[in-house]
């Protein structure tokens, strides 16, 4: 009797420990980082073969950029479109459809054809304040209405107008990553950051912090507890320069050609679609708190607006999901 008892217990313990051991082997976690789309892309994957999956996800982002979105490449779909002024591609058309729709819904506050303007300000290389006349001239070469969709065919009707995915590309990458993850059942949990646009996918809750402008130490001004979603932020602190005491940032008003000046420092959008989170972040920043909140609601998105007085405005649904850091006050719009 005693012997049997000992043997059975020993066997059970061995089996249990082997199970624990093997489960650790499988549910591994991997984190990989790369530079693409002119920004830092990081992905954290939890699940079987997480290392392989993380690598494949980064490849997807790189391919997306080189094959479709980069406007600096001659071979990408965007490059071809901007050069030939017409291209037939279902993916590209698929990206542009919601952007055109958003441009209309936001009354032109969101516009994806502003490259002549942003190149003028050249935030990424040698920023300068352009002359009024230069701005007016550049504005002539912008306008989303010049981009027409006919099924899968995209046509730009004005020769000087070009398409720029700068304010939506990161979101598109999130959607592509989500597509990939949904196909792989071995992936249990994914958090991807494409230049600050975040994709959370998997069971349970995720904690996403909103970066405090100008903080080198990764400090946050608020933390959001969310279920799986896409989160994107537009901030005036990302790319800007200062001259004569004034701050000029990269989020331009498509109507005036000058940086949006409404006291906002950042907008963060939370919702299902990646491309919309990215585009809406820019659109809502330009629209301001009231109109921005309404716009977000139309798309079933939640929004966070932060102004230069350290006040954080949120749409009602986020009331129980947000914690603001010291020094910030919370207002529900």
């Amino acid at each position: 009797m005693k012997k049997k008892y000992i043997i059975t217990t020993a066997l059970i313990t061995t089996v249990l420990s082997l199970c624990v051991f093997f489960s650790f082997l499988d549910s591994s976690q991997s984190e990989k980082t790369t530079v693409s789309m002119d920004t830092v892309v990081t992905v954290k994957v939890k699940g079987k073969n997480s290392d392989e999956a993380a690598g494949e996800i980064l490849d997807i982002v790189k391919t997306l950029d080189s094959k479709y979105l980069s406007r600096f490449s001659e071979k990408s779909m965007t490059g071809i479109l901007n050069r030939e002024k017409t291209v037939t591609d279902s993916e590209l058309a698929g990206f542009l459809l919601p952007l055109i729709s958003l441009s209309e819904k936001s009354n032109g506050r969101f516009d994806f054809t502003l490259s002549p303007l942003s190149d003028l300000w050249s935030f990424t290389s040698d920023p300068r304040i352009p002359k009024d006349s230069e701005i007016k001239a550049a504005l002539q070469n912008t306008g989303y209405k010049n981009v027409v969709l006919n099924g899968d065919t995209v046509t730009i009707t004005d020769e000087n107008v070009s398409v720029d995915f700068g304010s939506a590309g990161k979101g598109i990458a999130l959607d592509k990553i989500r597509e990939y993850c949904d196909k792989k059942s071995s992936i249990k949990r994914v958090v991807a950051s494409v230049g600050g646009s975040i994709l959370c996918r998997g069971k349970g809750t995720f904690t996403v912090g909103i970066k405090k402008p100008g903080s080198p130490g990764g400090e946050i001004l608020a933390a959001l507890t969310l279920k799986e979603c896409c989160v994107s932020t537009s901030g005036s602190y990302e790319r800007f320069f200062e001259e004569d005491g004034r701050i000029y940032h990269h989020i331009l008003d498509p109507k005036t050609g000058y940086p949006v000046d409404n006291g906002l420092v950042s907008t963060t959008l939370v919702g299902e679609s990646g491309i919309l989170s990215d585009a809406l972040a820019t659109a809502c920043f330009a629209a301001g708190i009231e109109k921005g909140a309404a716009l977000a609601a139309e798309y079933n998105f939640d929004a966070v607006f932060v102004d230069n007085q350290n006040t954080v405005y949120i749409t009602p649904n986020l009331r129980n999901s947000i914690t603001v850091s010291d020094g910030y006050s919370l207002v529900v719009v």
Binding site: K3, I6, T9, A10, T13, S17
Partner: peptide, 13 residues
């Protein structure tokens, strides 16, 4: 706990 249990079983034998 784990090692204690395993050692305990071995000791028992």
């Amino acid at each position: 706990v784990l090692t204690g249990v395993v050692n305990g079983i071995i000791a028992g034998a």
